[in-house]
Design a protein around this nucleic acid. Structure first.
Lengths: 241, 241
DNA sequence: CAAGCCAAAAGTGTCGACAATCGACGCCTA
DNA sequence: TAGGCGTCGATTGTCGACACTTTTGGCTTG
């Protein structure tokens, strides 16, 4: 049994976990665009660069594969996932599905703390919008949506959201600044939070649908213009509420 | 070069990928209950038993960890995930969210092939229900729901469903036969398919809600009765029925 | 007899190595 | 010159080994 005789001196730093560190480094490199879609991730090269052996790199790569960031091609190695416009559209469809649920749940069990956190995040976004720092705004945007999922009180929902978001980050990083009008980001998020605070499920769904639908169409459009290589019929008709 | 005269004749060559095989074996062992929740999965033991080295086992374990089947405890190894009643409830909440969306989408773009596949699966379940083979019925049940997600035409949705389902399988395997009345399984699924065929979103959502809600309450109730929030995890040993 | 401590055993985290396989380059042949 | 074939280098898949950590079992001690 756990005697736990040791004093409180163990801050569980556990730096021995190379896998997590490598996974993080690779993830950063991908979302920052230093490893563009399609790029090969050679185990030996990564291991050499980090001064470690290949084993942790392999395991980290498997982790990222399961998250959809990398793609494993047997006997050929790992590659940064390439997302077609259709892929992104699929991801947004799921985000919509997940965030609808999250927002409604968040409203049902909204604590004052969660409410304040959302308000603060919105203020932060307004602030950042004035300074026009694309990368930071995208991060704040992500955090706002993540806070909603947190407020829903379902740990798996949050994990699910993180998974979808991390896949989307592959392309978000490429696109750069998504919002032309710096105030738009606050204008589009404000009604969502207001609806959650008001607690009307229909209004919540409507506003979430609108907000994510706008982003969805925007990103898909940008992506289609960027890589018009796949004219495969992805005519995903917008879902009607 | 486009000397690729043969379009598609792919015999799907034998997978020499040990990692996938190990992952599959471990998954089977978990869902069949041979590796009960909380059980330690020792790399060396697994490697010995399979006659391979530890490296592929480690990678497979990481894979299963990302799927939520295993839990990694640094410096201590991998353990089969223990699901509380709350965990299962969370999973069902997400299943509901996902399957609602899947069913509505499936109805919107229902092809005759998908419709037939669903019909056949329902017939199969009716057939199996008469023979009373719990494990097979659970599998057929799973396949029915999976077919709906397939029909939704969103590959990621399917992956998502598989992830949720695989986590749930940890406990489904323990519970054994979920349905007391052998005909119930057909009775509860029939209206869902009928609603999808009819194509009325409200009816679809209502029936999916009802069907999954029933299963959810049932499983959560069973699980709460089975393990009344006991933190004494190790010596559970429910191997002998 | 219980609790605590110490040593041995088992297991993980990481490494370097080796064979098998893939892609590329160059050579040979029409 | 174009296309097919064999060889070479590079990379992956897998293995065995080693250091360090955790666990276990016994032994001492109160």
């Amino acid at each position: 049994m756990r005697t736990m005789s040791r004093p409180v001196g163990l801050p569980v730093l556990a730096e021995s976990d190379l896998v997590r560190q490598v996974a993080r480094r690779l993830t950063d490199a991908i979302v920052q665009g230093r490893l563009p879609p399609g790029a090969k991730v050679a185990e030996a090269a990564v291991a050499r660069e980090l001064g470690i052996s290949r084993a942790p790199v392999r395991e980290a790569a498997r982790l990222l594969e399961s998250q959809g960031l990398l793609e494993a091609s047997p006997r050929r190695g790992f590659f940064v996932r390439e997302l077609s416009a259709r892929d992104v559209d699929e991801l947004y469809a799921l985000r919509l599905c997940v965030e609808r649920h999250a927002a409604v749940e968040a409203a049902r069990r909204l604590t004052p703390e969660a409410r304040d956190a959302l308000r603060r995040q919105l203020d932060l976004m307004r602030d950042l919008a004035r300074r026009d720092d694309p990368a930071t705004i995208v991060e704040a945007d992500y955090q706002f949506h993540r806070l909603i999922c947190e407020a829903a009180g379902n740990a798996r929902l949050l994990r699910l959201f993180d998974g979808l978001a991390s896949e989307l980050r592959i392309v978000i990083g490429l696109i750069g600044h998504l919002y032309d009008d710096p105030d738009e980001i606050a204008r589009t998020h404000e009604p969502v939070l207001a609806a959650i605070e008001a607690g009307h499920p229909e209004r919540i769904v409507a506003h979430v649908d609108h907000h994510i639908g706008v982003a969805r169409r925007e990103v898909v459009r940008l992506l289609e213009g960027l890589a018009p290589q796949s004219p495969a019929s992805h005519s995903q008709t917008p879902e009607s509420p």
